[in-house]
């Protein structure tokens, strides 16, 4: 390890030690999946409507602000046409980093107001877009990858700012489960968050698991939660109760020692069960059990029916039969191993 890296590590350690004693405020980044199709689908199966989910989220944020006056929030919406910031606490905005913070209680009124305004205008623009592009576009999944990238940028800005001392973490609220086509960008964001020591929590309101979010929560020590649809849908407070009891705490309450690598837990939270670590084919976007890995760029493919790697353009020997391509394309058996490869 070069001296510079060592120095950086020492610096990191110093920062962590000093923060151990502090009761640092949290900065919560909420990624809100506003894909109409998937919410409609989950409502049809007995889940809550998107409005109910939003109301629970707002009350949850109220509780979040109540915990610590310095807590800040960023809300990012993901929809089939992209992603955008819905709200960001004044304290996080660059020009106001030195300014006066509003008291948490009052910020909430502002969020209620701004969020409502933004979502109304967003749904209008989404409607006009989807009517322009015919019916099949409404089935497209939300661009969670782009929302994740925005979240990663926010995390970076918070942690590189000298005067903002906060613990950033991410909460994803979604009703969609299938996102295989965004595997690469999402994984990149997740690994960068893991490196930045940021927890990713996921609340999936659907009847099926979302494997990428499972992986994200597992890798970053966050919590992945998929409550039973019928239970959450039947009473309006159920979703809120889940959120408050599981997602409200930050590192200080989830782990005995917020900064050390040993993850001995303090509060009992839902544990990850059987995380599906399969990755998806870089070409078709389908989940693969056993596939081919490019020896140059480590891309994963379900089938090897090409001679130039579609990702990195490296040549694959033409004169060999498809079965012998194993020489060039390493076969990978275990799914978990592939997860490691992409790191």
């Amino acid at each position: 390890m070069s001296t510079k890296e060592e120095e950086e590590e020492r610096e990191e350690k110093g920062k962590q030690q000093s923060s151990e004693l502090d009761d640092l405020p949290s900065s919560l980044i909420v990624i809100l999946d506003l894909n109409q199709a998937s919410w409609t689908e989950s409502t049809a199966k007995g889940g809550p409507t998107v409005i109910e989910a939003l109301e629970s989220l707002l009350t949850f944020l109220r509780a979040f602000f109540m915990l610590h006056g310095g807590n800040t929030v960023t809300i990012i919406a993901a929809h089939p046409y992209g992603s955008e910031f819905l709200y960001q606490s004044p304290a996080l905005q660059r020009s106001k980093a030195h300014g006066h913070q509003q008291s948490g209680a009052l910020e909430m009124d502002e969020i209620d107001h701004r969020l409502h305004e933004k979502i109304v205008s967003l749904s209008k623009s989404l409607k006009s877009k989807s009517s322009q592009e015919n019916s099949d576009s409404s089935m497209k999944c939300s661009l969670l990858s782009s929302a994740f990238a925005l979240a990663a940028c926010t995390v970076n800005r918070i942690s590189s700012h000298k005067l903002l001392r906060m613990l950033p973490r991410v909460l994803v609220l979604t009703a969609s489960t299938e996102l295989p086509s965004q595997y690469i960008p999402i994984m990149n964001c997740i690994f960068s968050m893991q490196k930045a020591n940021v927890l990713i929590d996921a609340l999936v309101v659907s009847d099926g698991d979302c494997s990428f979010l499972q992986q994200a929560a597992d890798i970053t020590n966050g919590v992945y939660l998929r409550p039973e649809l019928s239970k959450v849908g039947s009473s309006p407070g159920a979703l809120l109760s889940w959120m408050i009891s599981v997602f409200l705490g930050d590192k200080h309450t989830r782990f005995l020692n917020a900064d050390s690598q040993s993850r001995s837990t303090l509060l009992r939270l839902p544990q990850a069960q059987d995380v599906d670590y399969r990755s998806s084919c870089f070409k078709t976007g389908q989940l693969v059990d056993v596939g081919f890995v490019c020896s140059v760029c480590l891309s994963i493919f379900a089938k090897c029916d090409f001679f130039i790697c579609p990702t990195c353009d490296s040549k694959i020997a033409l004169d060999r039969p498809a079965g012998a391509a194993v020489n060039k394309k390493r076969k990978v058996a275990a799914g978990a191993q592939k997860g490691d490869d992409t790191k």
Partner: peptide, 29 residues
């Protein structure tokens, strides 16, 4: 807000449970 972080967390949960007696030891590892 003056309580330690763990305390605030416990209070938030307790508020939702109303007047029941709660065995807190079950909430921690």
């Amino acid at each position: 807000r003056l309580m330690p972080p763990l305390g605030r967390q416990l209070l938030m949960r307790l508020v939702h449970l109303g007047q029941e007696r709660v065995e807190l030891l079950r909430w921690v590892d």
